[in-house]
Amino acid sequence: MDIKEAKKNNATLIMLEGRLDSSTSGMLEKKLLSLMETGEKNFLLDFSGMDYISSAGLRVLLMAAKKSKTAGGKVLLSALTDNVKEVFDIAGFTGIFTIFATAEEALKDF
């Protein structure tokens, strides 16, 4: 998995590529926690380059969403691919997260 990050006006955009699973989710968790430590509380995770997510990935997303919310921020998601969308639906995550078709649209929401 590759993680690219870009600081936008009111949020940090994180672009994920590859597989978010039990051997890579720790990488994303570390990245998000270290950004939170610097005071960031708004995140946009863009999934356009990510075709696979397992429960290990869902775990990190929920953890980040809860922590951001406590800090007065939020985690938004964009561009879910079909496979990722299916996992979100089955896990009930479509109801927990706000999901946008594109990163551009999501960024307007912060």
Binding site: S54, S55, A56, L58, R59, L62, M63, A65, K66, K69, V87, I90, A91, G92, G95, I96
Partner: peptide, 23 residues
Amino acid sequence: APDIKQDIDERPIGGLGIHLVRQ
């Protein structure tokens, strides 16, 4: 089985793996 209708505050972290398998 997890309760997938819970909102973000109630939702426990984890416990989804076997639920995904069953689906």
